[in-house]
Amino acid sequence: MATEVSAASMRKLLNDPADVVKESLAGLAAAHARVLRYDAEAQILTRTDAPVSGKVALISGGGSGHEPLHGGFVGKGMLDAACPGEVFTSPVPDQMLAATKAVDGGAGVIHIVKNYTGDVMNFKLAAEDAADEGIHVESVLVDDDVAVQDSLYTAGRRGVGATVLLEKIAGASAERGDDLSTVAAIARRVNERARSFGIALSSCTPPAAGRPIFDLPVGEVELGIGIHGEPGRRRGPLGTARELAREMVEPVLSDLKPGGSRVLAFVNGMGGTPELELYLLYHEVDKLLRAAGLEPTRNLVGSYITSLEMAGASVTVLELDDELESLWDAPVDTPALRWGV
């Protein structure tokens, strides 16, 4: 039943806004009990077969509201555990430590950390606590956003779309039996070879706030936004999909400077953009990449790292090599990504 929490500003499918994350996680686990389980006390999600003896474990997390990131990527070939915080709020170190202990199979654990101040600090504390308990943890930072150098939530570049690609590729590396240093090196290689840029056509409304984060007049677009509704590098008139694709692809390629020709092109919806528009945008992105001498041999189109119901999209370009391409193609079995199984 739809609940009108605030008739003036917010209509969402909710019971109590304070319980939205916990109830959503319970629903995710009920819908995908084959691949993941939910520990309500620790507020973490783990693979049903965790811990996997002798396998490097991968953990990521962050504020909720970006679904399917990260819980939707828990399963074989990707994450071993996810730590969801409240909406747009970092999880706490206790969650991260609980997840680390729950999935440690004796080969070490990798923390995949998006570059947001709260996430970085809390994962660092959890890694130190895990080390005190004899668990070897490697932390990999994701900072692929070329839009702004610093933001309301970060020192340095934000971690955005490349997070999905890194979790998939590093997850495949761990699944094939690579050791901790190898998996970490592959994860860092993905981050080094990926760049992203996002735009917003509307704001979003966090359930606890009951009002949009920012006001975007009709006919305008925010260029270079983050996944928490942070402002971008500038605001301008809303142009065509072709023009907006150019606004995203040009800074990505200018910063990435790919040395090879093969790339993975990821067009991501921010939560409120239909696939009709995302595939139209991908068509424009594909043309721009080919015009730049690049070949999108792999792609991903859909809403995979979102900002609640925000209308908008992001583009991520990953420069591939033979190994990264093979790891991308490897089987994966999670609620949000599934192929080869």
Rank of each mutant, 00 (worst) to 15 (best):
G75W: 09
G85M: 10
H228T: 03
K257V: 14
A208T: 13
D94Y: 10
R262I: 00
D94L: 11
E250W: 00
G269L: 04
L58H: 13
A200Q: 07
V87L: 03
A311L: 02
K22E: 15
E133A: 15
K55N: 10
D150I: 07
V183Y: 02
L28N: 07
D39E: 03
A98S: 12
D132F: 12
T117Q: 10
G71S: 12
E250A: 14
L294K: 07
E133D: 13
V301Q: 01
V267R: 12
I186M: 06
G312Y: 01
P51C: 12
R189T: 14
N122A: 09
T48V: 15
G302Q: 01
H32R: 00
V103Y: 02
A26L: 11
G159Y: 06
E175W: 08
F266H: 15
E175S: 13
A184Q: 08
V52I: 14
L318K: 06
A313G: 06
S139P: 00
L276R: 12
P296N: 12
V21R: 03
P51N: 13
A126C: 10
A50T: 09
Y279P: 00
I199L: 15
R176D: 04
D39Q: 06
R195Q: 06
K76L: 09
F73V: 02
A30K: 13
A187F: 01
T89D: 01
V103A: 08
P331E: 11
V103K: 08
L79K: 07
S9A: 08
A336L: 01
D16T: 05
E275Q: 14
M310G: 10
A184W: 11
V146H: 05
L288H: 03
D104L: 05
R242I: 00
V249A: 07
R189F: 00
I59H: 11
A194D: 03
S24G: 13
L281M: 15
I213K: 14
G61I: 08
D321P: 08
C204I: 04
Y282Q: 10
M248C: 14
K76V: 08
E4R: 10
S326Q: 13
V146S: 01
A131C: 00
T273I: 02
S9P: 00
D145V: 11
